[in-house]
Amino acid sequence: MNPAPMTSQHDIYDPPPSGTSWLPPRSEPLTFTRSDLACLLVLGTLVLIGTAVAFLFEALLGILVLIGGSLVVLESWYTALGFLSRRPTDQTWQRVVIILAALVPWVVCLGLAAALMIGLFVLTDIAA
Rank of each mutant, 00 (worst) to 15 (best):
L116A: 13
I63K: 11
P3M: 08
D11Q: 07
A54F: 05
T89F: 01
P105L: 03
V47G: 04
L48F: 13
V65W: 06
G111H: 11
V47W: 01
L84C: 00
L30I: 03
D36R: 04
L23N: 05
P24F: 06
L71S: 02
F55N: 10
G82I: 03
A52T: 14
A114T: 14
T92R: 09
L48D: 06
L123K: 12
L71I: 08
W106S: 09
P25Q: 06
V122Y: 07
T7E: 11
A54K: 05
R95A: 00
S35A: 14
W77C: 04
I126L: 12
G19Y: 11
A80I: 00
N2E: 14
T51C: 07
T45A: 15
W77S: 04
L64H: 05
P105A: 04
L61W: 10
L46R: 04
L61H: 08
F32R: 08
V72I: 14
I98Q: 07
L43V: 04
P25H: 03
T124S: 15
A102V: 07
D90M: 02
A113G: 11
T33Q: 09
V108C: 05
A38W: 11
M1S: 13
V42W: 06
A80P: 04
V42C: 02
L112E: 09
I63D: 07
I49D: 03
M6A: 15
V107F: 14
L61G: 09
L120G: 11
A102Q: 01
V42H: 01
F55R: 09
Q94M: 02
L74D: 00
P15V: 06
L66Y: 09
A114M: 11
V104H: 03
S85V: 03
V65K: 00
Q91C: 01
L64E: 04
Y13D: 10
T7L: 13
S18N: 06
S21C: 03
L48Y: 08
L71H: 06
G82V: 00
F32A: 09
T20H: 13
A115M: 11
F121L: 15
I99D: 05
V108K: 05
R26Q: 10
P15Q: 00
L64A: 13
S76I: 01
F121P: 00
S21Y: 08
W106L: 00
P15Y: 00
L103H: 12
A102T: 02
Q9K: 15
S70H: 07
S85A: 12
P5S: 09
T45L: 15
L56P: 00
L46W: 14
C109W: 15
V108E: 05
L74T: 05
P29Q: 04
P25Y: 09
P105Y: 04
R95C: 00
L40P: 03
D125L: 15
W93D: 03
R86K: 10
A59K: 11
R95K: 08
I49K: 01
I99L: 09
D90G: 10
W93H: 10
I63Q: 08
D14A: 15
M117T: 15
F83C: 02
R86Q: 12
G68V: 02
I98R: 08
G19H: 12
T51N: 06
H10F: 15
T20V: 13
G119C: 07
G111K: 10
S8D: 13
I118E: 13
A101C: 12
Q91A: 03
S21G: 00
L61M: 14
T51V: 09
G19R: 14
G111W: 13
I12C: 07
D90N: 04
A127N: 07
